[in-house]
Amino acid sequence: MLEARLGETQLLKKIVDALKEIISLSTLDCSETGMQLQSMDNSHVSLVSLSLQTGCFEKYRCDRNVSLGLDLKSLSKVVKSASGDDSVTLSAADKADKLLLSFESDNKSRTADYELKLLNLDQDHLGIPDTNYACTVQMPSSEFARICRDMSMFSETVVISCTKQGIKFSANGDLGSANIKLAETSKGDITIDVEEPITQSFAGRYLNTFTRATPLSDRVKICLAPEVPLLVEYSIEDYGYIRYYLAPKVDD
């Protein structure tokens, strides 16, 4: 059986918020090492991968691997009903058809138990090869969210160029054009590692959706390489991550 307790429901709320705009149904695979989830969006343009190692949890027990087919909209409704500082325990039997969520208030005076019906999902899993990225940029996640929002006012396509001098985001549309450049800073809040300069185009709508994960981490890592999808990674409390992959736009 599975029993996993998070000290604060706030973390689960943030994770669900980071997933539900991209995917509506997904399987959460639980094993003794933690929880994993991987899904593509309906149009097969982006993929989200979530990993939570046991260190994310106050208590974690999973005797046998269990796959939980989740409707994220339903999970979101349940999680919204709890207070952020409640603790939450997820539990499921070995061949479960439901997930139990038990919320407990700080002073233990209020408990709330929910049963969520599980779905039998037949999901494709993709193998993501290890990639030696040409450019790796780390910046404050709020800065990345702001740039993605500002770019999307100008065009649905955002061009990202990365050189040793910095990373540049550009958008060209009916309104005009926008260019935002960031250089590496000495205090280390922006780091730019470039093996080889790169310029690629991406759909701004997806980049914007990825920034729903901003509350999970102060920092975001952006990795680019020729001919491979963009990787946008938010770490989760030292023991996990949410990674978004986005296929580039290519010239016709």
Binding site: D124, L126, E227, D251, D252
Partner: peptide, 14 residues
């Protein structure tokens, strides 16, 4: 205008 590539062009099914 650039066209959107499909992610499955890059990652294989396992």
């Amino acid at each position: 205008t650039p066209i959107q590539n499909d992610l499955t062009e890059y990652f294989s099914l396992v």
